[in-house]
């Protein structure tokens, strides 16, 4: 349905099929990433704007995302069994499966945020930290950039996404500080503060999943697993 870059292998019958199937799965993953990103945005809007209807909408969306995730995974497994791809195709396929998984986890986290938003609605006087919005913006940006890196096979920007995780972590620490001081100010705010703390943690985890996606992209392009290897000399220039 969508145009898809043909793989460079010569087009024997099986590899043409594989290439078409890979293309379909690829576009489904991309569409899923768009939906997940929108879900996170909605969850954050629900949280900051205290909109419980929006929060319920996000929670309702999760089912659809789960369904799509399972579908994509089944397709990928089918491709593995049927075509037994090797080399670049195999890496591409496994990377798509991993990204698919990460996206589903991000959607779950968006649901968590939406649930916290639902709970926070009743605490009208509690000032929800507005940095949460910025932090969520940065985290979804990371998700989007990592998917862009996947699309463009751009290792450089994948490394940048990995490096940006530190900013998210810093923002998380700031918000935790702020929430702690709010708790100290008013004991009645302890419960909403804990809720916003949890939301902040969820956003931070979204950033972590974006890093996973970026690492998968690096694996797909280079064939090198960079997970748990943050002292890699190639990472250093991006860690200023």
């Amino acid at each position: 349905m969508y145009g898809f870059q043909q793989s460079k292998e010569n087009g024997s019958f099986m590899s043409r099929h594989l290439s078409k199937d890979l293309g379909d799965a690829y576009h489904r993953v991309l569409a899923l990433s768009g939906q997940v990103e929108e879900m996170v945005h909605k969850a954050i809007r629900a949280l900051i704007g205290r909109q419980s209807d929006l929060a319920s909408e996000v929670i309702g969306l999760d089912e659809e995302i789960d369904r799509v995730e399972v579908q994509i995974e089944e397709e990928c497994l089918k491709m593995l069994a049927l075509h037994q791809p090797v080399a670049a195709d195999l890496r591409r396929l496994t990377t798509m499966m991993k990204i698919n998984n990460d996206l589903e986890r991000i959607a779950d986290l968006a649901c968590n945020i939406a649930e916290r938003a639902n709970d926070l609605v009743e605490f009208e006087t509690y000032p929800i930290p507005e940095q949460l919005s910025d932090m969520a913006g940065a985290a979804t940006r990371m998700v989007r950039d990592s998917i862009d890196a996947f699309v463009n096979l751009d290792i450089e920007s994948a490394y940048q996404v990995i490096a940006r995780d530190d900013t998210i972590d810093e923002m998380n620490v700031e918000i935790i500080d702020q929430v702690t001081s709010l708790m100290q100010q008013n004991p009645a705010w302890i419960e909403p503060a804990l809720l916003s703390f949890s939301a902040s943690r969820s956003i931070e985890q979204i950033g972590d999943h974006a890093v996973n996606v970026a690492e998968d992209v690096i694996y797909m392009v280079n064939g090198v697993i960079v997970r748990h290897r943050h002292n890699d000399p190639r990472l250093r220039p991006h860690l200023q």
Binding site: Y2, F4, L30, A31, S33, G34, Q35, V151
Partner: peptide, 9 residues
């Protein structure tokens, strides 16, 4: 391809 660039559902 559209989805590679704009993924807004």
């Amino acid at each position: 391809p559209l989805l590679e660039v704009i993924r807004t559902p």
